[in-house]
Design a protein around this nucleic acid. Sequence first.
DNA 1: CTTTTTTGCGCAATCGATGGTGCAATAACC
DNA 2: GGTTATTGCACCATCGATTGCGCAAAAAAG
Lengths: 358, 358
Amino acid sequence: MTDKTKKKATIYDLSVISGISPSTVSAVLNGTWRKRRIKEATAELIQKLAEEHGYSANLQARGLRSSRSGLVGLLLPVHDNRYFSSMAQYFEAQVRSTGQCPIVVSACRDPDEEHQIVESLISYSIDELLIAGATDPDGVHDICERAGLKHVNIDLPGSKAPSVVTDNYEGGRLLTQALIERMREQGPVAPDELHLFGGRDDHASRERIRAFRDVKRAMLGGDPDSCIQPTGYSPGNTAHAFEAFHARHGRLPRGFFVNSSINLEGLMRFLAQHPQEAFADIVVGCFDYDPFASFLPFPLFMIRQDAEAMITKGLSILSTTRPPIMTHLVAPTLVPPRTALIGPLDALKDPDAVHSVL
Amino acid sequence: MTDKTKKKATIYDLSVISGISPSTVSAVLNGTWRKRRIKEATAELIQKLAEEHGYSANLQARGLRSSRSGLVGLLLPVHDNRYFSSMAQYFEAQVRSTGQCPIVVSACRDPDEEHQIVESLISYSIDELLIAGATDPDGVHDICERAGLKHVNIDLPGSKAPSVVTDNYEGGRLLTQALIERMREQGPVAPDELHLFGGRDDHASRERIRAFRDVKRAMLGGDPDSCIQPTGYSPGNTAHAFEAFHARHGRLPRGFFVNSSINLEGLMRFLAQHPQEAFADIVVGCFDYDPFASFLPFPLFMIRQDAEAMITKGLSILSTTRPPIMTHLVAPTLVPPRTALIGPLDALKDPDAVHSVL
DNA sequence: CTTTTTTGCGCAATCGATGGTGCAATAACC
DNA sequence: GGTTATTGCACCATCGATTGCGCAAAAAAG
């Protein structure tokens, strides 16, 4: 405002115009001035000046000196997904409320990307890191360890750092059970009428598949291997799997468990190619919640993972001194078809909304 | 690896163990060594050493010296939304491919938050900023301007910096027209049978509403004010608007235009409260694309905004020397019901996918 | 064998903030 | 009034990398 100069004011600028030493200015502006026995009047003077000149600390300089940066990272597999983007949303709010700066990045489920990105975050001296859904959590751990960076795994556990993950077995159990019960409303269910699509060889998929098989064996008396198709986390591959099944059997399975909302997008691609009748009587489960998917024109049971609780727990572990290396389970919930849950966006105020129309 | 020390190696460490001066080490490791006429052998030696000791530059130090940071920011209204999260996805990929570090933050559509967050990004000396969907683009501009930070508006235009936005009028026109044509398949359409919900007093909403009204007047011969309900970008408020309409008329409008996927979530909340029959014959348009929403059990026309093109254009403007202050329009596309488009995630490789099952 | 040119690299200041140490001036005490 | 305590603040090294400048040794030119 008062300064037309293109560059930001520094403590030296304030020092010159106030005739007070830079170290005193620094102390005043970073809040340590009482400890340094600076007179209240001096502090007020400097604060006023800083205000007038729009001073704000150069955080790179501060970070260099203190080898901390005030940055807290969240490493995601992908942004473009309601589960992970809601994590990002909660993460931002919580980190910002501690006065730190959240920085969210995605590594596309590529281990090399994960490593590179973490290295680069370390180069920026980030203070803490939440590693969500990493393909190689232990590899990332080693990198963090070497740099002395505090970190926690979220969503997919690692063996070398504390982890916070959904109780995937329980979620898988809830979902499979709900599917079978719903299918039984249409008549008896044979073991080969309930399939599973999607997921890969990671902890979450394994647990979900284990639950799926356990429940099938207990409730249906059987569990053929051919009912499991881990197509990876790719909409395209999942769509192919549905097409292949349909080509072979002339229809989709009566019931199936889709391992994530990303795989569920594969189902949408299949649907786009087929008339509504092709799936008039299917019952579907999806391990993820999406508000639109919940209203699709077939019964769709969803599992809502508690992203908020996981972020909260993860951050609280980070603020613990020497957290034990263990895996914390967070309970997911079964969401029946046609359910609209509220999400992180509901916490936002919207002052411009026009209410009068009601 | 070779070093057990907890701290990262610096150019000084490498200088000591190699007997070569820090400045030479620095030059070698930042690539300016040819310009400084360093012997090739020396360079190789240092590079080998750096490799062995897992050296990576302290970017805070570099940033301090050069008053650049290698960080490029994307300021979003919210993460938890397919439109913005796909922007984030494209943004990350594109920025990373230039060797810079993307940093994505959200400001919750709160002007104060926007200002604060931008101030803090500036404190980290970020090099460039994409401002997406800002509530107060010109306010943010002033802050950037003062700090000499290059910036571009995306999605919502500002008057003081270059902007890249969807052609909202054209999108609104396409959508309204598609709605009316579809409604006419069921019989003649009266002006008060087509409504609009959602949006607030921003450029995008105004343009969409203008198109909506123009098309209604042209095609239906009328355009009552009572058909427009800008409920803000809040699922809750939107749901209330639907409930209120339903309470008054005993049904939803035959056709309606929903201003964003966030408002569409409000419709889901309404649906959850009512039996399927309550909306057997509605025709809906939504200004945003979501792959699941597209398959909802009623005709839902969607507008897909070209996030990728907007990011690309925005970044290219940032790399221009003195870009003119103008608004670039990006054409959106009309997406008919039951369409599964591919998105940014399809660019990802997925090595672990099991294809054999096909 | 000089003189000039080129090669190769080191010196030292700098970016902005932090914090340990030390030194006056003032206040408190006997 | 002289001595000790306290208050208030300045000095300066430091964090790690960058970069203009300059100097010695080697090479080329004369």
